[in-house]
Nucleic acid binder design. Structure first.
Length: 591
DNA sequence: TTAGGGTTAG
């Protein structure tokens, strides 16, 4: 064991600059090699960047470093993103060394480093080295770091292939694979696409497989499972996972807690999310971010701001994500001045440099509030190149406030950046349709055709008695299809009595008025609502999850249904939640 | 000495 009372180590503890460290180092070189090895590992275990940089300098003075020493130093260097290149240079030392070659301890930290940009490309060649230098069966640490790497590299199928090769996966291996599915799904976006849903469903299936094996889940397992439920909006399964934590005496630590707060919020149960958040004992910035984000997507701007201010009372410092969710809350709550103040405070108060996503929030904040000119100016003055999300935000604002010229300009940039994304064309096309410029609608349709773009099919999910039912626009595949369409007829007749006039301008195509009305009637969320009205208890709120944004007509009609049928309807669309109750919506028509 | 967990603009 290392003697921590050794005078050189005592001096080392007091070193806070390079000059004093150099003096200590000179003394260290007078000691034996074994002491130097201990000394280095001690230095590295402090995990401070200063220490690992200095250890690297000292390392170069050691005549015959052992593989143990190389591995220790590589691992330490990979903990700091700006020193990863040093870790790889040491790895190359090993490769060129006459008598050394990498072992099972060398690879895991390197694969961890490869799991993030800009080191992703280094992963596959490193995998080849594993095959060259190690003998199967491979060490579980190496296998797990490989699974994790391929998931982050965007090759989830390779992770799964490697996972399937492992005859008896251990706890960490199950957890790695589960987390890979859950993270790949949420990573794409907050929306639910077919692919995201598939990945989250796969996580749920994998958890079932795990239960059939002899491996008992731990907190890490449950975090992945709960995240998958958040992505799917699967409340029953998420609540079951919460129950699992309690039944099995797993710790409700801040990881599990944050995942649950996020899950309840993304499944539409903001009250449960709040209750859980209040009960968490060791909250950190992540917990706050999840809760502020929850208030934000449910349209509770003031509560989000209150929490943002309160986190300082717990000595917690906001990070980049805190700013994003809080500005989102301001943007969707019409709290423009408050949002601007937070953006300005990033640099001034918190010493943070705004990133692309923060400018995104800023443009959305100004644009949504109708301050289009300012939004455009801020976009032009940004220190980095605007991405597609930013232009789409400006396009959305231009559409909302009827500024065609700005919309057209934004679309031009968008098509350059994302020629294959249908949503961009649809936004502009709807803008033309809303003012009856059908020739322009046709022109956009042609443009879509030229670029080989198809309109993304809209779909909605609704949970009835624990089972998820899926509907596409105009879908007739459901076993109760006949009843559903007949219910839609009844709803339409009833809403006419409420004075509803369909907003046919929302239909993308130039068709006869009556046909347009039909087309609107069969948007996927209408089918889902009609089915829920038939199949669920009248005392239960209807919960819908939609992959696209709700169209203006569906939004108007859902408000009326909530009054006419006295049902609370909660819709999670691509961006946020809409709580329909007694004829109005929580978004205050500001979405 | 080495692997697996929560939040984030449209």
């Amino acid at each position: 064991m290392l003697n921590l009372n050794h005078p050189i180590l005592q001096k080392l503890q007091k070193c806070h600059n390079l000059n004093t460290l150099k003096q200590v180092h000179a003394q260290m070189l007078t000691t034996g090699l074994s002491f130097q090895t201990y000394y280095l590992s001690h230095l590295l275990n402090t995990s401070s960047k200063f220490a690992s940089t200095y250890a690297f300098t000292i390392f170069n003075h050691i005549p015959n470093p052992t593989l143990f020493l190389y591995n220790t130093l590589i691992s330490s260097l990979t903990h700091h993103s700006d020193q990863i290149h040093l870790a790889f240079s040491l790895y190359n030392h090993i490769l060129t060394h006459k008598t050394l070659q990498p072992n099972s301890f060398t690879f895991p930290s390197l694969f961890k480093a490869c799991a993030s940009h800009p080191w992703l490309q280094h992963g596959p060649p490193l995998h080849a080295h594993v095959l060259k230098f190690l003998q199967p069966p491979y060490d579980p640490f190496v296998q797990n770091s490989l699974l994790n790497f391929y998931a982050k590299y965007g090759k989830l199928c390779v992770s799964r292939y490697l996972f399937d090769q492992i005859s008896e996966p251990d706890l960490a291996t199950w957890n790695t694979m589960l987390a890979a599915y859950a993270q790949s799904a949420s990573h794409v976006s907050y929306s639910t696409s077919f692919e995201d849903a598939d990945m989250s469903l796969e996580a749920l299936h994998l958890f079932c497989d795990m239960q059939l094996s002899q491996i008992k889940p731990n907190e890490v397992t449950l975090v992945a499972l709960i995240s998958a439920c958040s992505n799917l909006g699967a409340l029953s399964q998420g609540a079951w996972a919460h129950g699992y934590v309690l039944r099995n005496n797993l710790k409700l630590n801040r990881f599990v807690g944050t995942a649950l707060v996020d899950m309840y919020s993304k499944c539409g149960c903001l009250n449960l999310a709040c209750q859980l958040f209040d009960e968490l004992s060791d909250r950190d910035t992540f917990c706050y971010n999840a809760m502020i984000g929850g208030f934000a997507v449910h349209g509770h701007g003031n509560q989000a701001l209150e929490l943002y201010r309160n986190m300082k009372l717990e000595d917690l410092v906001p990070d980049g994500a805190t700013i994003v969710v809080t500005m989102f809350a301001c943007s969707h709550g019409g709290l423009v001045e408050e949002g601007l103040e937070i953006f300005e405070s990033m640099k001034g108060v918190h010493g943070m440099e705004p990133k692309l996503e923060h400018y995104g929030c800023l443009i959305d904040l100004l644009g949504r509030a109708g301050r289009l000119k300012e939004a455009e100016e801020r976009l032009q003055d940004m220190p980095m190149k605007p991405n597609a999300i930013l232009w789409r935000s400006l396009l959305g604002a231009a559409k909302l406030h009827g500024n065609l010229e700005m919309g057209e300009a934004a679309l031009k940039h968008l098509i350059e950046l994302e020629p294959e994304t249908s949503g961009n064309y649809v936004l502009l096309s709807n803008m033309y349709a809303s003012i009856g410029r059908w020739n322009d609608v046709r022109r956009v349709r042609m443009l879509m055709k030229d670029h080989g773009v198809d309109k993304l099919p809209g779909f909605s999910l609704v949970e009835i008695n624990g089972a998820m039912h899926e509907f596409l626009t105009g879908d007739k595949a459901h076993p109760f299809s006949k009843e559903i369409y007949s219910k839609i007829g009844e709803i339409n007749r009833r809403l006419l009595e409420y004075g509803h006039k369909p907003r046919t301008s929302e239909v993308l195509f130039d068709v006869e008025e009556e046909d347009k009305e039909d087309f609107l009637s069969y948007h996927s969320e209408r089918l889902a609502i009609a089915f829920a009205l038939i199949a669920s208890s009248s005392s239960m709120p209807i919960r819908i999850i939609k992959n696209l944004r709700v169209c203006g007509d569906c939004h108007a009609i859902t408000k009326l249904i909530s009054a006419a049928y006295q049902r609370d309807i909660i819709v999670r669309d691509r961006n946020r939640f809409h709580h329909f109750k007694d004829g109005s919506c929580s978004c205050l028509d500001y979405w």
